[in-house]
């Protein structure tokens, strides 16, 4: 059974230099309250694994959306992502100020590499990236030809912490996701040493029918009540 903790307790768990997976796609499906609290904290030198760098300007007029505030505060040392074009601060910090290291991976590979770690697999063989500079990525372990087709062997991806978000989370940690918020939550819940899940609605067991549970509570270590976003 996961432990229900406060947002302040979440922040206290995450040390400087930690590697942190954060779910979400341009902020949709990100654990917004946890990110807000991290942005207010002094935690620094994070290795952030997230699809993107969030974006300035959220749907409700937020100044920063998704992980963008963490980038803005220079709390991230290394960003492993698939697309950072919607957050101009990434280009500034990585190419001009040279304070942020950015490692770009194809989105499908990124998802599957995370899934691989969570599923106990030694890597992913994917045709994606063959013939491109992905072959030179530190995460590309080699190239193989199988049945006349070339594949790249991509390393599994893990993190110290996964910060995920559920639309409904029950007291056993079971999660239901609304709409497209599901995105990277399912794979990230499996691939970190410590999994922290922010609930938009924290509900009693039974409130999410078993067939609607997309992440089982067995993957979740801590639950935080975030409230309706």
């Amino acid at each position: 059974m996961p432990k229900l903790i406060s947002i302040e307790e979440v922040v206290a768990l995450i040390p400087n230099g930690a590697s942190v997976m954060v779910s979400g796609f341009m902020g949709c499906g990100s654990p917004h309250r946890i990110i807000d609290a991290l942005a207010k904290s002094q935690v620094r030198d994070l290795t952030l694994l997230c699809n993107d760098a969030g974006m300035p300007g959220g749907p409700l007029g937020e100044d920063f959306y998704g992980v963008a505030k963490l980038i803005h505060n220079h709390q991230v040392k290394t960003l492993i992502a698939t697309h950072v074009g919607l957050n101009p601060e990434v280009a500034t910090q990585s190419m001009q100020e040279k304070t942020l290291e950015v490692i770009l991976l194809p989105q499908g590979s990124f998802a599957e590499m995370i899934r691989a770690h969570g599923a106990g697999l030694g890597g992913v063989l994917t045709p994606t990236g063959v013939g491109t500079i992905i072959e030179e990525s530190p995460y590309c372990l080699g190239k193989q030809t199988i049945q006349n087709r070339d594949y790249l062997l991509m390393a599994p991806l893990k993190a110290d912490f996964a910060l995920i978000a559920g639309s409904k989370i029950d007291k056993a940690g079971n999660i239901w996701y609304q709409g497209t918020t599901v995105n990277f939550n399912i794979v990230m819940a499996t691939a970190a040493d410590v999994v922290l899940a922010e609930a938009e609605q924290f509900v009693d067991v039974g409130a999410i029918p078993p067939e609607d549970v997309r992440t089982s509570g067995v993957f979740v270590d801590y639950v935080v009540e975030g409230g309706r976003y």
Binding site: T82, V84, M95, V102, P106, I134
Partner: peptide
């Protein structure tokens, strides 16, 4: 997806889509 030294928005899902 990239103009080295100038723009590096990232490939997002494009590399997978082109291959698949």
């Amino acid at each position: 997806w990239i103009i080295p030294g100038k723009k590096m928005p990232g490939m997002g899902g494009a590399m997978d889509l082109l291959v698949g």
